[in-house]
């Protein structure tokens, strides 16, 4: 049993391994020995060429800015919504929650053209703002839903004690509710960041100029043009994989905790 599962785990990892192998080969080595051979040495020129050709540093920065701002803004909106829905129990909250859940599941295909048209009208087309605004809303739908159910079970006596001590609702939110909900909030930050990093359709449509593109859009467009040779393709795949591996190593704990509280896409 252990043997069978280990084989499966290795098979799952094979694509990662051959990408690394081939990204480290010279084009000559690749054509002479093919994709399966272990590289003779470490040749980083291919990766460096690809990096320079697509200005990969800029793309990384764009992805980091967009995903980072969305994570923070999305969490703020989620917390505000969930405060009103979960603790405030505003009238009609069941309907609002159903709406929020629907928004989270709606296919982006049914929003993309109107968004493209509207952002052109207001002059935000082909800016990072457009993508930031859209994903702040789309991602916060999930957090609103999750946090509302967490906050609905929030210990009431704590809130009432603070109110009696003269704290305003705003103060109760930031001094009591947010600190106590920190574990859930951190899970949301990490998930929003990674989800936004992985988004493709709307960023592809909104960010047409090179300077604004994210990692996924830049790599996807290049792949779509079918202009890359084999070693360059593997260099591009490797550069796409590395940030994910970094997130995985940094956030491993949070990710597995998130999955158990139901943070599922």
């Amino acid at each position: 049993m252990l043997a069978a599962l280990t084989v499966l785990a290795v098979v799952m990892l094979v694509p990662f391994v051959i990408v690394v192998f081939n990204a480290l080969k010279t084009p000559q080595e690749y054509s002479a020995e093919g994709p399966l051979a272990v590289p003779n040495g470490v040749y980083l020129e291919g990766i460096k060429d690809f990096w320079d050709r697509v200005d990969y540093g800029d793309k990384l920065l764009n992805s980091i800015i967009i995903s980072g701002v969305v994570a923070i803004a999305g969490v703020i909106i989620s917390v505000l919504n969930a405060y009103a829905l979960g603790i405030g129990k505003v009238p009609g909250r069941m309907w609002l929650l159903v709406m929020v859940l629907m928004a989270n599941m709606l296919p982006q295909e049914s929003l993309v053209y109107p968004l493209y048209y509207l952002f052109k009208q207001v002059g935000l087309y082909d800016t990072r703002y457009s993508v930031i605004i859209v994903f702040t809303v789309i991602q916060s739908a999930f957090g609103t839903y999750l946090l509302s159910s967490v906050l609905a079970a929030f210990p009431r006596p704590l809130l009432e004690a603070a109110r009696i001590d003269g704290a305003s609702r705003w103060q109760v939110l930031w001094r009591i509710v947010v600190p106590i909900s920190r574990p859930t909030i951190i899970v949301l930050l990490v998930f929003y960041f990674i989800w936004t990093w992985n988004e493709f359709l709307i960023p592809l449509v909104m960010l047409i100029s090179n300077d604004n593109q994210t990692v996924s859009v830049a790599l996807g467009v290049l792949q779509g043009q079918r202009l890359m040779d084999a070693t360059m393709s593997s260099a591009s795949a490797l550069l796409g994989i590395i940030p994910t591996l970094v997130f995985f190593l940094i956030f491993q704990r949070t990710l597995s905790r998130g999955l158990t509280v139901g943070a599922i896409k």
Partner: peptide, 21 residues
């Protein structure tokens, strides 16, 4: 974790890996 790893990739990158394979 090994089996879950592909899930973390941007699906675009997963596509690039496989169209090359």
């Amino acid at each position: 974790a090994c089996i879950y790893l592909p899930q973390l990739l941007p699906i675009v990158v997963a596509g690039i890996v496989w169209s090359w394979i």
